[in-house]
């Protein structure tokens, strides 16, 4: 952690980056994203099991982008990212949203994170995405911090099992998701925290014509949640932030994971793996399977 603080401070002092986006500790079991431009403030940076946010979301924010434009011609931003978050960076580079040369990736050698703030870090409270994680450190980062330790063995219980839901007959599956989506209050926290949801103007905010009903009734909720899942299919890197942010506990990652599985099965594509490949949609081939066409 001290190494990260020193390194980040140097970056700002030497004016290599315009800002450092990292985590600061707030309370015992919680961190908060922090945008640092003053080198001395780097002492606030932390790296631990409570670094839940995917900070890559900030790279596409107008206010943050403006920092890298206005300050003395410094184009680079430094971002603290877990190896799984780095997959979102790769996806954004593939989609021409950010440039690698304008980024300083400070990676954290990760041994898992908690499922939510306030939990004690142990096998019971391991985040779902960490259960079968096999990328504890990243080779794509500019520098990695912290030691690689073993991820605790998951001893908790997941509330929903994707394979069980897959096995339900279509009508039951529909019923399950309708019930879940009915809970949605359209706060759009899922959209706000998603690094891949970067549209300047989301389709749900368009009013002429209105494609997605803004009302939070069954139909409006269903439309929004399905559009969200479809727009992220072949793109979602599985950071799980949408599900964590949801105040109504909707298991959003079930759909995301299913879409990721389909992308792999049908097209051999995994989002966020490599900047050498075009995106899934960008690599459309007439010989592609049409199983998913509606």
């Amino acid at each position: 952690m001290d190494e990260l603080r020193r390194f980040a401070r140097e970056l700002l002092l030497k004016k290599e980056v315009a800002a450092v986006i990292g985590y600061e500790q707030v309370g015992e079991a919680r961190t908060r994203p922090v945008v640092i431009t003053d080198p001395d403030e780097c002492r606030r940076l932390v790296l631990n099991e409570y670094c839940l946010n995917n900070l890559v979301v900030y790279l596409n924010r107008a206010r943050i982008k403006a920092l890298a434009r206005s300050k003395e011609g410094i184009r680079k931003l430094a971002v603290v990212a877990k190896p799984c978050d780095i997959r979102s960076i790769v996806a954004l580079i593939q989609e021409n949203q950010i440039r690698r040369e304008n980024l300083m990736i400070l990676s954290m050698n990760c041994h898992g994170v908690v499922r939510d703030f306030g939990c004690e870090f142990n096998g019971d409270n391991l985040a779902a995405k960490c259960i079968s994680c096999n990328t504890q450190s990243s080779t794509y980062a500019d520098k990695s911090f912290g030691e690689v330790r073993e991820i605790p063995k998951f001893t908790g219980k997941l509330e929903y099992d994707l394979s069980e839901i897959e096995q339900l007959p279509p009508s039951k599956r529909m019923e399950f998701f309708r019930e879940q989506f009915d809970k949605c209050i359209k706060c759009y926290a899922c959209r706000a925290v998603c690094p891949l949801c970067y549209c300047q103007r989301c389709i749900t905010d368009k009013t002429i014509p209105r494609w997605i009903e803004s009302s939070s009734h069954s139909r409006g909720n269903f439309a929004w949640n399905i559009v969200r899942a479809l727009h992220l299919s072949g793109r979602c890197t599985g950071c799980g932030e949408c599900e964590r942010a949801c105040p109504m506990d909707i298991p959003l990652s079930l759909l995301n994971r299913k879409m990721a599985m389909k992308s792999k099965e049908l097209f051999g594509y995994e989002s966020g793996k490599s900047t050498d490949n075009p995106t899934l949609v960008g690599s459309y081939d007439q010989k592609d399977s049409d199983e998913l066409f509606m």
């Binding site: 924010r61 706060c187 926290a189 959209r191």
Partner: peptide, 16 residues
């Protein structure tokens, strides 16, 4: 300004 940089503009706060 500082708060504006971190907030992601969702409505969790208002709806809860």
């Amino acid at each position: 300004d500082g708060i504006g940089e971190v907030c992601l503009s969702c409505a969790q706060c208002a709806f809860a």
